[in-house]
Simulated assay, not measured.
Amino acid sequence: MTDRRKVPRHDLKLDRLSEREKKKLIVELVKIQNDGTVEVDIARSSPVASELLELHSFEGPPIDIDEAIFSESKKSVPRLKIAMLIVGTRGDVQPFLAIAKRLQEFGHRVRLATHANFKSFVRSAGVEFYPLGGDPRVLAGYMARNKGLIPSGPGEISTQRKQLRAIIESLLPACTEPDIETNAPFRAQAIIANPPAYGHAHVAEALGVPLHIFFTMPWT
């Protein structure tokens, strides 16, 4: 491996490029696949391009690629059908609703699947809704009563088992069934989920689509 610290900056081909040319070069190396994944082809790129990507990984501030650069690259971002599988209370749902609206601004069709009592909340924001099983009040009550890994009583296990079953059985329909109001066909090409949706990984694997799992809050 070459130690880049021993290479004088004035000897690098990269220095002959302007900041805009560097940004454009990165964009030209990026190919967005139909499934939304991003492929970077370094093998067929110039030595300057390889040098740029290599150096950028180790030093200097992040390079912001503005919208004008993307327009110049003439690469279109695929418009995806995205299912968001969100389990929890309103505090869990609301941040994902903001994400859904932002994704819609980029031209994606987003379905936010969550508990039935949030139907009006989601639809009033202009986002497609699909009901998931489970009652957030029951789920929140269970979490409040059972702080550790061991349930506080035998009845708690039965309660939580019923909730999990209802949630898990509703996940695949949420990603494949038509809209419940317009009957417009829907099949998720990507899934976003918070961890309490439980079966998200299995549904993504069954459909062969990418999955992004995250909380919108610190979690330990």
Rank of each mutant, 00 (worst) to 15 (best):
L17R: 05
G91L: 08
I167W: 05
A125S: 14
R161Q: 13
V138E: 13
W219L: 12
G60Q: 09
I63T: 14
H108V: 03
S73Y: 02
N194T: 13
I192W: 10
G126N: 11
D11W: 06
D135A: 09
A201W: 05
E67K: 11
S158N: 11
R90E: 07
E181R: 15
S152G: 08
L53D: 04
F106S: 13
Q189S: 08
M1A: 05
I69V: 13
A100H: 07
T37G: 12
E169F: 02
G36D: 05
E169T: 11
T2Y: 07
E72W: 06
F215G: 07
L80F: 02
A201Y: 07
G88S: 09
A83E: 10
I180M: 02
F70P: 00
F58R: 11
I65H: 04
N194H: 10
K23V: 13
P131S: 06
K147S: 12
R102N: 10
A43G: 14
I32Y: 02
T37A: 10
Q160L: 15
N183K: 02
T220K: 13
A116N: 05
P151N: 10
I82P: 03
G208S: 14
N34G: 08
A197N: 04
L171R: 00
S170V: 04
A144E: 13
P196V: 02
I65Y: 04
R111K: 01
R109T: 11
L97E: 00
N117E: 15
E28W: 00
I192D: 06
E67A: 15
K101E: 12
G155L: 11
E51G: 04
E169M: 09
S46A: 14
E19S: 08
I167E: 01
A184S: 14
F214I: 00
P136C: 08
S57E: 03
P131M: 02
K22S: 07
Q104S: 09
R44L: 15
V27W: 03
P154V: 00
Q163I: 10
V38I: 14
V93R: 11
G141P: 02
S71P: 00
T176M: 04
V7L: 14
A83R: 04
K31V: 12
G91Y: 05
T159D: 14
L211T: 09
G88F: 07
K24Q: 15
Y130C: 06
F58T: 06
A100I: 07
P178V: 01
A100R: 10
R109G: 04
Q104D: 04
A100V: 06
I150T: 14
H10I: 00
T216Q: 11
N183H: 04
A98L: 10
F58L: 08
R90T: 03
L139D: 09
D3G: 09
H56W: 04
D11K: 10
R44Q: 15
H108E: 03
E39Y: 15
T176C: 05
T89M: 07
A193K: 07
P61W: 01
Q163F: 15
S18P: 03
A113Q: 00
W219V: 14
N146P: 13
S45D: 14
L211S: 06
